[in-house]
Structures are given as structure tokens and as C-alpha cells.
Design a protein around this nucleic acid. Sequence first.
DNA 1: CAGAAACTCTCTACGCTGTACGGTATTCTA
DNA 2: TAGAATACCGTACAGCGTAGAGAGTTTCTG
Lengths: 254, 254
Amino acid sequence: MTTEYSGSGDPRRSIELLWGVQERPRRGPKPKLTVPQIAAVAVAVADEEGLPALSMRRLAEQLGVTAMSLYTYVPGKAELIDLMLDTVNGELDMPADLPGGWRGRLRHIAHQNRAMYLRHPWLLQVATSRPPLGPNLVAKYDYELRALDGIGLTDVEMDLTLSMINDYVHGAARGALHAVHVRDSSAVTDQQWWERAAPILAEVLQPERYPTATRVGVAAGQEFDAAYDPERSFAYGLDRLLDGVAALIATREH
Amino acid sequence: MTTEYSGSGDPRRSIELLWGVQERPRRGPKPKLTVPQIAAVAVAVADEEGLPALSMRRLAEQLGVTAMSLYTYVPGKAELIDLMLDTVNGELDMPADLPGGWRGRLRHIAHQNRAMYLRHPWLLQVATSRPPLGPNLVAKYDYELRALDGIGLTDVEMDLTLSMINDYVHGAARGALHAVHVRDSSAVTDQQWWERAAPILAEVLQPERYPTATRVGVAAGQEFDAAYDPERSFAYGLDRLLDGVAALIATREH
DNA sequence: CAGAAACTCTCTACGCTGTACGGTATTCTA
DNA sequence: TAGAATACCGTACAGCGTAGAGAGTTTCTG
């Protein structure tokens, strides 16, 4: 149990890896694998079994080689995670034209990013101390900025607005995954956890000390309990956020 | 390198730990330590040396005991992290009255939470699969909801709005920490990283392929470079967000 | 065409992690 | 004062990332 870090090795090597600028090696046996293949399998393992299960040995086994032979492709695990990050950022579809003006475009971007987090929950667990500036990430940044271009914002405001949306999406995805995890765990353990925790909590948590929390918690619970819908929470937050952007744009128009 | 998880043990034990409901044991030697003391030292270690450095052995050493003796206080590392989470959530100051109406109150909450993340960067790295419902977390939830009470929102909307703000703060703190880390690393390695990465990136990243990204990236870079101010980015996002809430409230008033 | 060089891959090994287990010392209860 | 309960420690195990040395394969060079 530690934390996965991204990007801590030689920058030249990292960027060459991400952009795939390898001169075709001449001598030596032909490689069994390719870097994108390794990244793809690593993503699959992390998706299915979680980030802690993604060890070099586990990944190597999946690829039919030994752990150490992975190090001929990738300098270390940190760089591997960089590759995984750029890989999943290449999955988003980026249509050139979208209905609904800037609001529709931003909505699309927000939902795309959210979907990416939900598809790859481990994304929320990698600490990007430096951005892995791979081709897919750069392409995505460009696409997302274009959605904000020419609607009355300055260049700096465009950047700020995009950051704001992506920050919110990240946080919201975190909340949604948490909720989904709690509900879906057919491993029963989670449900059991709550069932066992509830009476003890009730014993220790006096409603009169936390009146607002109790009232709202109950209201939110009743609203969501049977069919808690993280989508709705996300839609609410995104609507507020876009309204805020609209208010700013309005000050530029008159 | 794996990922720290919170809350995976026996719920009864976890909640008893968090709320400190231990009957005074009668027999046996007196404990050298207390649970809050252990949690406090663990927080200090994680603050100063990062979450990966917080091993049971390291923590025990700091406390003058062996690793295994910690297990008489805490069932495992996951529960320890739960305790750490609740501990830092008890540091926030929660004044009863604040100027500036609901906007001022929400601003205070957002800044408090952000400050907490900046003080304890490891918070962004713990994957809370279940919320550690300790006394401090519950108190905070209650306080934050009160800031939203009686301003024209329904109970469910209050909960949604609070989630939205907290989600955004989490994401924004993540971005800010990233930026701070890149700039402040007097360990030189980070600066060197960029210095070495820049020419290679320039070689591989053709501006004509990513016109918007290049233009805005340059603009944002110039604006921020000499004195990048994550505070400003945060202030911008928070303002947009509060404007969005204001727009909703306005529809309720007329 | 032979030899060297470059490359891939494997084996072994080190220090680290969380923690299960068993033993010992201490303190309170009966 | 005997026995039970508790706190603490030493050892041990499986797993981690990866350093280093060596074996095997391919291709370029002379």
C-alpha cells in the first residue's frame, strides 16, 4: 500500500516513449512486445483488478514474459503509468461540430471526461506530480480549448474556465465512483458494512447535536436511496457551473 | 507503490475507534500511547515526508515502539488512515457568524477546505471507498450545510450544492498542488525536468497541429509564468460557481 | 563469411512493505 | 496471592519495484 506516482524519470526518455519516437533498432532479437501493447494491457489489468493489482510481475505474466523484461520497454513503473494516462486520454471522441453552442460543447467535454474516469477508476488514484504531456493529452487540450474559442472570453479566461470544468469533473467523478462502489459491491461486504455500521452510528451520533446534517442527510437519503443517481448530482453541478460561465459571458456582450 | 485505502475493516471497530468509545480497560500494562496521539504523529509524518514514507515501521519508530505494537491500538493501516482523515477534518475553524451572507459563508468553506488540502497533500491520494464517518467529519458536514440553510434552496439542493463546491475544491486543490510542486521543488530536479523536457517537446510538438492549445498555452504561460498564482485560478472558478448558485436562487425569489 | 556489437530476455537477489503468530512482561480482579 | 487480561516485541512470510549479471538472438562491420 503506497501511492502510484507518474513521471519521475528522465524527461527525454519519457517524452520519447510517449510520442513513440524510437529509431528502429537494428541489432538484437526482435522484441516480442510493443510499448502501446504493454500500455493497453496495463490499462486492462488496472480496469479489471484495480491499481494495487497492477504489479510488474502481474503485468508481465499477462504478457507472457518475465517482470524484468518489461524494463527493456519502459524505464520503470512511473513511466508506465504515464503511458497508461496518455492511452486512456486517446479514447475520447472529439466531434468537430456539436449542437447547442458553447454550452453543448462544454457539456460534451464534461461528460466525456467523466465517462473516462468511470471507465478507468484508477485514474483518480494516480498522483500526477508532473503532467505526462503525451500526444493524446495535448490533442485533448487543444480540442477542449476550441470549444471555448470565440465566445467572448480572453485566452486566459479560456484556460481558467477549462481548468474549472475539469477540476469539477474530477471531483464529481470521485464522488460518483464512491457511490457506485458502495451500492454495486455485490461482494456484499459493503452492504453488510453499512448494515452493521448503521446501528452503531445511530448510538453514537445524536441527531440533536447535528440538526441540519440530520435533516438534510435524511432528505437526501430519501430522495436518492432507492435509486441514487450520481448522474443527477453531476447534472446539477454542471448546470450551476455553466450558468456561472454564462453570467460572465453576458457581461462581455452588452 | 500501491494505493492507500481507507475503511476496509470491521465497521464496529472502525466507528468505535473514530468516536473514541473505548471502555477503560482494567487489566494489563498501561498503554504507552493513545489513539489520537498515534493519528497526530501519522499526520505529521505524512505531511512532512509524504504518504509513501508513512509505513507502520516508520511511524512506530517515531513513536518509540515497534511496528507490531501499533496493532494493539489500530486494526490495520486502513483504519489508521481513517483516523488521520477525521483528525485533519477537525482542524478547520467554523465561526458561527460570517459577513457577506451565503456567498461569504460558502467562500469561507471553500477556502477552508482548500487550505486543508494544501496543508495535507496526502489527502488527495487516499482513496476513500467508504466515508470515515468520524465526529469531526460529521460536525463539518453539519456546519457546511448550515451555511446553505434558509437561502431559498430545498434540502436536496443544499446537499447537491455542497457536494458541488466540495468536488470543485478537491479538483482545484489537486491542480494547485501540482503547480506548487512543479515550481517550488528546490530539489532542482523538477526545474531541470522542464528545462530538459522543453526542447524535446518543442521538437515533437508542432504548433500548427495544435493552434488553439499553443496560443492559449502561451497566453496562460505569460500571464502566470513569473508569478503563477493558483489562488487566482481558484478565485476565478469559485466566482463562476457562486454565480451559478446565485442564478438558481434568483429563480426562487421573484 | 566471421566476429563483434547491440539488443532482448531471464534468473537471482536486496531492501522494503503490511501483518500473522507466538512469547513475555505487566497489571488488575477474584 | 493465583489467574486472567492486556501491551509489547521478535520473528517470519508473501509480495513489491528493480539492480545486476548472464544467456541467447539478430544484425552490422571488416
